[in-house]
Nucleic acid binder design. Structure first.
Lengths: 299, 299
DNA sequence: TCTTTTGATAAGGAAAACTTATCGTGTTAC
DNA sequence: GTAACACGATAAGTTTTCCTTATCAAAAGA
């Protein structure tokens, strides 16, 4: 009923379209020109319509018909999909352990992953790992686009990611970061009212406070610094204070201190994100299991 | 380098896996059992690893290896992707879907297109239509700029549009429009001399008379009204008469009448315009064919 | 043990894919 | 205007792939 395309045939089509000539496409395909002609004709027969303008009608160059124009991106997608699967299977076969494509938010990436990953790969010497770090939104996007198999992020409520499966693991609480010599540093916990006479520097994680009682503090904030290194440098220089999730606070810093914020008490759930309705690769599954066992304890 | 899978081959794999047997898969594929065996073996050679447990080792039934388990969802996804594209292209070829970009002169747009279009889209629920109405010059410009795929217009002689293909369909004749109570209304046809003692209101279509015997009438015209609604209102108020192509005359008007002008007998050819040397999108082609069949008869 | 079921294998034929050689039609250069 | 050229179509023949029929071997059920 439905025609069935061959991947090679689609490649021929894409090459003819992009290189604007049967001749060049033939070269690329390591075939003779008539082979490409026949391949394209077969494709046109399957589709039931021409994809290239017949040379009698059009100008000097090989041009797509409107129908062909519509088909081109679809053909390219299918080829890409095929190749990604093909490559994936090859990687999997070559080293028994496979390929782990991982994305994580920076805080976990810096604080926990180095240790976790080194333990994880200790007994899997042939495991290939691709790692990306970015914010939660970007991690989720990578999962959805299947650019990575598994991610570590928080699930931004509000935004609906209903093809994402989330397994919470860590609780990250918001706290105040200030210089050791700041009077606030003596407290063991803080409330938003305590910050009134401080210069608050907001940052990329500040939006976590946006819908809380502390929101007015943000509105009055004079500084916004997105880069973590710059932000830390500013606080170290005593220019002001900021708020950060605990995991984002540099672990061994001696001049700054982290004081939990009790009102509002904002807790960010961080965990494993994966595509719903799709099984993990063996390597990713193993890593997920590993984190559930090790990672939770480490907290 | 990378192996290239055939869709049929992947189907065989999926069927064997899901129906748990080469035999059943063969039935489903309308092939013999050895064909499936060979197909699967070829797949395993390409992958470089077995996808099914060899019967000596494992249990009674055909079982996937872990490697095969990992491949199965990917194979299914690729098949689904392929089929969705295939189906999409079939829909597009049968112009059940796609995009028809159409421009027309107002007269045809009001008098004939509503009926024609509603018939045309009757069984194409997913067909998107963009429609523009404007005068012939503008329609031709839109075609040339490829802002629309197909147009309905007349071909103004004088102006050269040598990359336009014109297929005449309707003949629109110029006539006099006057109030029912105007003495002229009794005639069944008129000549330009008959209009001498009338107040002639010229309009956008009057240029069709410019190079005819009736030109002097236009020169003496006191009124020019471009807007059709205003023009009709003026004539209905008995302020004067005008000339219009028949298709531009409002079909069901009771207070005005249309009397063909015999000298000069100006006939405007209206038809399909499209870009020469460029094939139409399937939807546009289907619409053109449809008009040629239906539209001509409807006149 | 005998029969049944299930997949593997062999050999031959049909279909598909690719090759070489040639042709026809527009394009370019002189 | 015509010769040379570029580009794709077509023809015929060969190689490769795919599928069939026939048969085999192993495991499971009675």
């Amino acid at each position: 009923m439905l025609p069935e395309f061959k991947i090679a045939q689609l490649r021929h089509f894409v090459w003819v379209a992009e290189l604007k000539g049967f001749h060049y496409a033939a070269q690329k395909a390591c075939r003779t020109q008539p082979a490409i002609s026949l391949s394209i004709r077969d494709l046109e027969n399957k589709l039931g319509a021409d994809v290239f303008e017949k040379r009698s009608t059009k100008s000097t160059m090989t041009e797509l018909t409107p129908f062909g124009k519509h088909f081109l991106p679809k053909a390219k997608e299918l080829i890409a999909h095929h190749d990604s699967i093909s490559q994936d299977m090859m990687l999997m076969r070559n080293n028994k352990s496979g390929h782990l494509r991982l994305a994580s938010v920076p805080s976990i990436a810096c604080r926990l992953l180095p240790n976790l990953l080194s333990k994880f790969v200790a007994d899997s010497p042939d495991l290939h790992i691709s790692f990306y770090d970015d914010n939660s939104e970007a991690v989720l996007r990578k999962i959805e686009k299947q650019q990575v198999d598994i991610g570590i992020a928080s699930l931004p409520h509000g935004h609906e990611h209903n093809n994402i499966l989330f397994t919470p693991i860590w609780q990250d609480e918001i706290g105040v970061v200030c210089h050791n010599e700041n009077p606030l540093a003596n407290n063991s916990e803080l409330h938003w009212q305590d910050l009134h006479d401080q210069r608050l520097i907001s940052n990329g994680t500040s939006r976590l406070l946006e819908e809380t009682e502390a929101a007015p503090l943000l509105d009055g904030s004079q500084f916004y610094i997105s880069n973590m290194l710059s932000l830390i440098a500013m606080i170290e220089a005593g220019i002001g204070i900021t708020t950060l999730p605990r995991f984002a606070f540099p672990e061994h810093n001696k001049t700054l201190c982290f004081i939990p914020l009790k009102t509002p008490h904002v807790i960010r759930q961080i965990g494993i994100v994966q595509l719903k309705n799709s099984s993990l690769s063996p390597a990713a599954q193993a890593f997920a299991d590993f984190i559930l066992k090790q990672g939770a304890a480490q907290q």
